[in-house]
Simulated assay, not measured.
Amino acid sequence: MHTIPQPQPDARPDERLRLSPLVLGLWRAGRVQLPRPRLVELIAASLDVGIDTFDLADIYGNYAGEQAFGDALAASRVPRDRVRLVSKGGVCLVSDARPAHRVKHYDNGAAHLRASLDASLQKLRTDHLDLFLVHRPDFLFDADELADTLRQMVRAGKARHVGVSNFSPSQQRLLAARLPELAANQIELSVLRRAPFEDGTLDLCQEQHCIPMAWSPLGGGALFTADAPDMQRLRTALAEVGEALGSATPDQVALAWLMRHPSGVIPVLGTTDPARVRIAAGAADLRLDRQQWYHIWQAATGCAVA
């Protein structure tokens, strides 16, 4: 069994967001309405290998995922200080659970985000989140209003840290101009979704010391299920690097490939299988050298770098 080494605290641990090197995402668990005993098992398996950070959102499981996880966490009797909770707000689904929503939309307004955070705290049975993220950029968001809203969440002690999700570099830079303490940007990133390496997203995260959290870090499973020749070429490269690293599995290598970036990418795992969580934890032990990293890049793009 692999155990993820935990980051060591610096001289001022309360001023810096600290997540486990990999995070367990609960989107899929909410979507399939994972039964409570399975959720308890998943929590235990994650903690056993050093994954103590759990990622949720108000909309997961048609607005029921946070409640299910909160109930499972209570049933597990894991102390609150052993876990780090991340949740998100700002997406408004058309749902029986939200009859006032006539159309799917985004809302980064103060009233909606505050209500979303308060509901998350209640459902998760906690008085604070370790990280609250604005789930999607509202095309109508007012940077001053949003910055003030997030700052007040921290001042009230309801969120230890705040950040964004799916924000473009320009959107992140705009908000950070008003709120420099943005702690994270959760983005789609994998060996199949490489745009953030080139569009400035990871550059900006590194510039601002903002943690990039990678959702769908294995391409939603397509990396290992698609039969196209380019996928087969990529799987071959992952297997070759894995063998060179001591029989690491291709999924471990794909995760370690992301974690190799100096911005400090943290993959958000989407599995509901405790066995897959245990395997994924081994990625934290791997360190690709530069040529191994570019070997995978070349396999993914189909050509050498210019």
Rank of each mutant, 00 (worst) to 15 (best):
T3Q: 10
P5S: 03
P7L: 08
Q8A: 13
D10V: 12
R16C: 09
L17D: 11
L22M: 13
W27E: 14
V32D: 08
Q33I: 06
L34N: 03
P35I: 07
P35L: 12
E41Q: 11
E41N: 13
A44M: 15
G50E: 07
N62K: 10
A64N: 11
A64R: 13
G65F: 02
E66N: 06
A68N: 06
G70S: 06
A72S: 02
S76E: 13
V78L: 14
D81E: 15
R82L: 10
R84I: 12
S87A: 13
V91K: 03
D96G: 14
A97Q: 13
R102D: 10
D107I: 10
D107V: 10
G109Q: 10
H112W: 15
H112C: 09
R114D: 12
Q122K: 08
K123M: 09
L129S: 00
A143S: 15
A143H: 08
D148G: 09
K158W: 05
K158N: 06
R160V: 04
G163S: 07
P169I: 01
R173V: 05
L175T: 06
A176E: 03
A177V: 08
A177Y: 08
R178P: 13
L179R: 02
P180H: 08
A184L: 03
Q186H: 05
I187H: 03
E188W: 01
L189G: 02
R194V: 04
A195K: 11
P196T: 04
P196I: 05
E198Q: 05
L202A: 10
D203Y: 13
H209A: 15
C210D: 00
I211E: 00
M213A: 01
G220I: 14
A226I: 12
D230A: 15
Q232D: 12
L238K: 07
E243D: 15
A244S: 14
S247T: 15
A248G: 04
P250M: 07
L258G: 00
H261T: 04
H261G: 05
I266R: 12
G270N: 12
A275M: 10
R278H: 12
G282D: 09
L286V: 05
D289V: 05
Y294G: 04
T301W: 13
C303V: 09
